[in-house]
Nucleic acid binder design. Structure first.
Lengths: 250, 250
DNA sequence: CGGAAAGTTGACGTCGATCAATTCCAGTGG
DNA sequence: CCACTGGAATTGATCGACGTCAACTTTCCG
């Protein structure tokens, strides 16, 4: 038996942030088999309108979930970091209506067949609930994006997203909340915030000039965390860290 | 044994749109016990920042999930119709960060204890997956809202939402896609679309003048479905109707 | 060293916000 | 039966955030 892929350990770490799993359940998750893949930005890893039979686990880099409009405009509806199973939900709804693309060059990911995921989740009810809970956390994050897009200014939206990414990256052990690798372009972030690349640039400039942010190349340094939290009126509650003692199946 | 509440039958109907359940599993769902509640708009049914021990199933009327900002602005992140279990996800994450409010006067709902939901889902893996899938469908809808808020104009957003509500209401057996009861106010819809009530009114006027929509009192009549679909560049795929033959646990 | 993609900046236009009335309507009490 | 009331709907005038268009510069990578 070969060693599990490091990305699976990250995935287990993410699950363990919100769900308690026994040794055995953890072993079962780590034992899932998959195929490693690589991808470059601007080409679909998962194309919309098709049926998929596997979920993609980010191993290295960033991935984004894209909604497309007939006029060519696109909107990112989720950003995934290492340890995120981008489309765990496709195990329940295998016909997908969105696209998955790399936001970094390169992106490394592991394709886990739905068969593996369902086998483990059906063998261990606690794993099924951990997967279910993971999807719920994803939905909770998307709901916050709705709030941002609906009611926050462009600068506030940017600040909020940066806070979110900082904490998620920190909790995944991929950096600290004030200094982390962020290989996406301003264009990608603009597509996530629902603004144009031009305006995104002005937003970044504004945050830079206020001495809140330093964003050079692929690294982001947050120089004034409290200010950023304030600008984005950020409240980390929705990220749902901290597993709950009562969440074990009986 | 008393008869199950009619709302439970609607809920089962909703689940059955996407998941296949055996007779026994269906009976187990219908056997869940709950307490009926009523609510008026503008008062929290579920307040944010608290732990809940039950999920709310809409029986009659409309409910909305609200995100709140410090400055008092609010954004609706989901609209629920009869048969929707508003916060089924709270069974997995009982500490909620949003509020639930009535969008109609009155709203009737059934509070189902998490204990009941978890008991049934742990007894029947297929039910657990049906619940999981239901949450995934909710997330899929929210993701479309992100696309709307990020990249569509106000009129397009309104048209898209109306199409969505029409199909959801039709599939719940509460009307047809062209004529249905919609007891929410323009203010509520504005809060869902991320625009002001004033502009919402102009949007409605525009759709009315184009002969697409008639919205009088609590009834909506869509006079030109194709036009509405076109204006909102609406594609119903994300609503995920039609259960899938391969979705049964083995 | 050359080319493409990303980043950056300015000028100008527009969609939707804001402010401020006014009208409509259901419910309520006299 | 009618005045009264408060929320919703409606409309106009004005303003500002962000989009659009069009350069130009920097960075990256072969």
């Amino acid at each position: 038996m070969t060693a599990p892929h490091p990305a699976l350990r990250l995935f287990l770490r993410r699950l363990s942030l919100r769900s308690r799993l026994t040794e055995e359940e953890q072993r079962a998750i780590l034992a899932m088999r998959g195929h490693v893949g690589q991808a470059l930005p601007n080409r679909d890893i998962v194309p919309p309108g098709h049926r998929v039979d596997h979920s993609c686990l980010v191993a290295e880099g960033l991935a984004g979930r894209f909604g497309q409009l007939p006029d060519g405009m696109r909107q990112i509806t989720a950003i995934y970091i290492p340890g995120d199973m981008c489309d765990l939900h496709s195990a329940m709804l295998p016909r997908v209506e969105w696209a998955l693309q790399a936001l970094s060059a390169p992106l490394t990911y592991v394709k886990i067949p739905h068969g593996e995921l369902l086998r483990v989740s059906r063998a261990y009810p606690a794993v099924a609930e951990a997967f279910w809970r993971d999807c719920v956390v994803d939905a909770s994050i998307i709901a916050q994006w709705v709030v941002s897009l609906g009611r926050r200014s462009a600068v506030a939206r940017a600040a909020h997203l940066l806070c979110e990414m900082a904490l998620r990256i920190e909790s995944a052990g991929q950096g600290t909340r004030t200094t982390f690798d962020f290989p996406a372009t301003q264009i990608h972030v603009a597509d996530a915030l629902g603004i144009t690349a031009v305006h995104m640039n002005r937003v970044v400039r504004s945050l830079r000039q206020r001495g809140v942010l330093a964003w050079t190349g692929r690294t982001i340094r947050i120089l004034d965390w409290d200010a950023l939290v304030h600008i984005g009126s950020f409240d980390e509650g929705y990220l749902e860290f901290h597993p709950d003692a009562e969440r074990r199946p009986m």
